[in-house]
Design a protein around this nucleic acid. Structure first.
Lengths: 333, 333
DNA sequence: CTGTTAGCGCATTCAC
DNA sequence: GTGAATGCGCTAACAG
């Protein structure tokens, strides 16, 4: 671990010159530059990022908090965010919150400790207050923490409407609606809208609340079993991809035909919707754009490039699969 | 951003005392401790991790390189590794390599720059040489870089054998075997073994090579379509979960019955094998243990706790699903 | 164009 | 018990 000093000594110059030469900042004569580069090479000099960070008081790291990495939507989101951050010269530190609010809090602490330059959070365990205390940049995905923290998310309202219309177009009469329960998240608008549109058309809607912090498959599967035990007569399901896939699995197991006996619509349109057979009809979130905008909104603040809007809502669209009927499509959006 | 100096001034003591008091290291009288704590609270002092890192010459961050976060196996692995690292007081910096060897290389650079204390790599793009140059701790998952770098992985040999016996037990006569191509990875033993066992029993095996660095669903799906076009008469498929699921999807689409017309066995047994219907029979890797051992092997080096074994191979087991026949199970393992 | 100096914030000697 | 001094490795300002 040779330092810049060793290089300076080896090249017979001052440390400042070495710094300028190696960073291509400021003037340095071609001849001394050569000497320095040679010395650096000889000593296998590599700059110490830790020292640089201290001086600059920034780490070039962005914290990303997700509820669970092992969930198709968040895995995909994390991937895209990581790539966009990388493209812009930042590293991603990841935090799997899995319903442990302590972990979320500790990540916020890292903000104050200058460990990370900013945070993008897709988790919702912690009280809004904890977030509002922060002075460094934060971007929230899908949850509204109030005017202080920029939020970016999908148009859940439209998503709920689209899903409802898919149900109507499929002639469903009794649909089950699985929703999480968490305050101030955009997803709530989707749930409200879905129910409203269907009830206007006299379609019965059964609500099924799922613990918001449950993300793994087995829990979804057990839930699906419970659902069909309690409500064997439903003819439609709207849920996150995982919930819809689980219901589909149980329905098939019970010998139900899709979409004749039951229609299913997922939300997110992650790749799992295309793995199951028939492919799951789903409302698609634009994850790539979500990632890009989250990152830019954060970095605009970190680098003080410009002011950021408080709220950015992205369009959603329909991924048609084989779990809804195509006839009589609702065209009056 | 008040520093330890401000606190010292506020409390009317020296910086050294503040440091000792706040870190609970060394003696400090109860009365001055009180003063210091009060001052710290008043100034909202938070230690600057960046400065600490420089002094200690370590960051407490471990780099994790995966081919693609948006792949069920690696997402799950990353999740478990992150949690184990967290449990042991480390943060995880994630790198999605997606076949871009530059990114992998840059991560290795971060090692030398003291940005991360060690690396766990599950990616395979880069030449082994690049890795061998490193002096700081590295742990490889599934790829053998030679005696310098510890490797941890699953017993692919046994996995291949188990899969072969599942095929035999299902009376397959012509199975398609999808394998990636990459040198020095443990998975190669699985491929070799699978073929060997089947050929000993006069079962025909068609090899299908897939680009190792392709991980997303659509590519797998297209591959599956190509496979059934070229080989409509196969009655068995062995592949990674994604490949098996894709083949299953296409087979169902073609009206084939499972497992009567075609049997499928996946490798990894990620949650997607339980999403599809019927559930996919698969050889399970013990991801939790894989994560735990990788982390411990790395940290044993980072913290110089003890010497680590060069090679650690974990058992695999069978997750029985509905895509193979249960009769005539091979019991002679 | 280049060398010297002064911190970035902290933790650890070592005298007192 | 405690304070002052030293340095982790680097960069930027300032004289030369």
């Amino acid at each position: 671990m040779s330092s810049i000093r060793d290089v300076a000594k080896e090249a017979g110059v001052g440390v400042g010159t070495v710094s300028r030469a190696l960073n291509h900042t400021g003037y340095v004569s071609p001849s001394t530059r050569k000497k320095i580069e040679k010395a650096a090479q000889k000593l296998e000099y590599t700059p110490n990022e830790l020292a640089r960070n201290l001086y600059r008081n920034r780490s070039g790291i962005v914290g990303l908090i997700v509820p669970d990495l092992d969930h198709p939507f968040f895995a995909c989101l994390a991937r895209n965010i990581e790539m966009e951050l990388y493209r812009q010269g930042y590293k991603t530190m990841i935090c799997n919150a899995v319903g442990i609010s302590d972990r979320e809090r500790e990540y916020l602490d890292m903000l104050e400790r200058n460990m990370v330059d900013g945070i993008i959070t897709g988790s919702h365990c912690l009280d809004g207050e904890e977030y509002l205390k922060q002075k460094k940049p934060i971007v929230s995905i899908d949850r509204d923490f109030g005017s202080q923290i920029p939020i970016v998310g999908s148009d859940h309202r439209m998503g709920g409407k689209m899903a409802a219309e898919l149900m109507i177009g499929s002639h469903c009469r009794k649909v089950l609606h699985i929703s999480g329960v968490s305050p101030n998240i955009l997803a709530n608008e989707r749930h409200r809208m879905f129910q409203q549109v269907l009830e206007e058309r006299q379609v019965e809607v059964l609500q099924f609340a799922m613990d918001w912090n449950t993300f793994h498959w087995d829990a979804h599967y057990r839930m699906a079993q419970e659902i069909f035990e309690k409500h064997p007569d439903i003819d439609g399901v709207f849920s996150g991809d995982l919930g819809a896939a689980a219901c589909m699995n149980v329905a098939l197991q019970k010998g139900m035909r899709i979409p004749e006996d039951i229609c299913l619509v997922g939300f997110d349109a992650t790749s799992i919707t295309r793995m199951v057979y028939p492919c799951l009809t789903a409302i698609r979130q634009n994850v790539e754009l979500l990632a890009e905008i989250s990152v830019n909104t954060l970095l605009d603040q970190v680098e003080q490039r410009k002011n950021v809007p408080h709220r950015q809502i992205l369009e959603v669209d329909i991924q048609r699969g084989g779990t809804t009927r195509a006839e009589n499509q609702a065209a009056d959006l």
